[in-house]
Structures are given as C-alpha cells and as structure tokens.
C-alpha cells in the first residue's frame, strides 16, 4: 500500500496509530502517508474513525499508540498550536469562527500569528495596529475567496457557506504545507459546495500545499481528490487512486452497500 520506509520525502506520515475510547477501539494500527501537493480524501461510514484520525493528526486528542511525523519530525506529543505553527491548518465541520469578529479581523489575526510579527512590547509601543501591507494582503485573500462583500460583517451574521469560506481563507493565509478539511461540504447546498470546490482547486494551484479531506459527499471527493483512503471500523481497508479504490469490491461492500 503506502510507502512506510523512514527517510523518504513524505510530507506527513501516520504510523500504526491506535486509539481506544474506553473499551471501544476506534483506530486500529492505521498507517497512512501524504505527499507534498496531493489531495487525499478520507471516506468511510459513520463511526469508522475518520474524525478521530483527523483529531489525532492535529493533536486535539492524543493517540494511545503510534506516531505522527510531519516533514520527518515526530509531532505526536506537541500541542495543537505548535502543530499549526509547523504548517498544519484546518477547517471545522462545526464552524469555529471567532464570534464578534469580522472576516477581515479573522484574517488579520491569523496572518499576524503566522508571521510571528506581533508582541506585547510592540503593542505597547503603538506598533500593534495593522500595517498597510497587512491590510493589503488580507484584502487580497478576501478577494480570492469572494468574501469582499461580507468582509466587515460580524461572524455571527454570516451564512454557513460564507462561514466555511472564512475558515478556508483563515487556513489559507497561514500558508500551510498541510491543509486538513473536516467535511467542508456538510450543510451546504449545491451552489455553495460548487464554490468551495472552486476554491479548493484554486488552492491546489500553488502545488505546495497538500490537502486531506474527510468528507461524506463522494461526488465532491471524487472531483477534488487525487487519492482516496477508506476507513471502516477503525481500520484502513483501502488506499490508492480514486478510480481503483472505488472499484475495490471490499470498499463497495462496506461503504457503498449494494450500489
């Protein structure tokens, strides 16, 4: 399946990851790798362990056993913010916007954090307010994500579609090497999903960022992913080209049922 030899130029390697919740084994020796610039879709029925895998990679929960390696460095004991700092950005299935802040402010704070260009001492000397170049950079990203119109609307007043775009833009401005998307199309209608897909394709353009998508909507994954991994009951049952995986009889049986 995947190349598990250490030392190769994989961006992310997950090795033998296991996680139990009480007596329930949610992940069983899952190993998976992500290459630079590729789009990996992770699918599987509800309760397959997709979200748990996602959370273990990002550090929201810690795995019982196994290793997570980003660019050759073990990261599985690092806190979430440190992993983000190393170039992992994410979006959430249930939006985690900064309530009370506008999309513009979302991007300003993310940009500042990413560039490590702020400190309390700078604030106290009056250098804390956004600089011209920061505002320009943020405006560009807002344009790119079609958010200019709602740039100064508080997050609470945004529609779900706009909310997802703001999260995507917030992740984008961090210039991630690994972008993790948790069910980006859930709760969206067809046209909004289309917009998200367009954005993802545009992001892929730079060829630097790898993307991992956990998604229910098979049509969507098919269009954006270059590789597909299938989880079932905590085990990885398939990993490969989209076409090959979808043709796999075991996958068809557990995931697609009779269809």
């Amino acid at each position: 399946m995947t190349d598990m030899t250490p030392g190769t130029a994989k961006l992310l390697k997950v090795m033998n990851l296991s996680k139990c919740f009480g007596g329930l084994e949610v992940l069983r020796h899952v190993s998976i790798a992500v290459e630079r610039g590729e789009v990996l879709g992770i699918i599987g029925p509800n309760g397959a362990g997709k979200t748990t895998l996602f959370n273990c990679i990002l550090g929201v929960i810690s795995a019982d056993a196994g290793a997570v390696i980003l660019e050759g460095k073990r990261i599985d004991s690092l806190p979430v913010w440190k992993r983000a700092d190393m170039g992992m950005a994410r979006t959430f299935q249930r939006l985690e916007l900064f309530s009370g802040m506008t999309p513009r402010e979302h991007l300003l704070v993310a940009d500042r954090v990413h560039r490590h260009s702020g400190s309390i001492f700078k604030d106290l000397r009056g250098h804390g307010v956004p600089a011209r170049e920061e505002l320009d950079r943020v405006s560009d990203v807002l344009e790119l994500f079609d958010l200019a119109e709602v740039a100064d609307t508080p997050a609470e007043a945004l529609s779900l579609g706009h909310g997802r775009l703001v999260e995507l833009a917030r992740a984008f401005i961090l210039e991630p090497i690994l972008l993790m998307l948790d069910e980006p199309s859930s709760g969206l209608d067809a046209s909004e999903t289309e917009l998200i897909i367009t954005m993802l394709e545009r992001l892929q353009g730079n060829g630097r960022t790898a993307t991992v998508i956990v998604e229910h909507d098979l049509q969507m994954v098919r269009r954006v992913a270059s590789r597909l991994a299938v989880l079932n009951s905590g085990e990885l049952i398939a990993d490969g080209d989209v076409g090959t995986v979808l043709a796999d009889s075991q996958v068809r049986q557990v995931y697609l049922g009779s269809t």
Binding site: V60, P79, A84, V109, R112, V113, G118, H127
Partner: peptide
C-alpha cells in the same frame, strides 16, 4: 488594538479555532 488584543478576542470567540491557527 494590538496583536495581543486581537488574539484575546479570537480566543474568546473560539478557543479551538484560535489554537488551530497557532495561538
């Protein structure tokens, strides 16, 4: 109005979101 204030506002808005961008 500076970095710390914005980061605080972000954390107050969503702690999970704030950690995810590296705060």
């Amino acid at each position: 109005s500076g970095t710390v204030g914005r980061e605080l506002a972000a954390v107050r808005g969503s702690e999970v979101g704030a950690e995810s961008i590296g705060i």
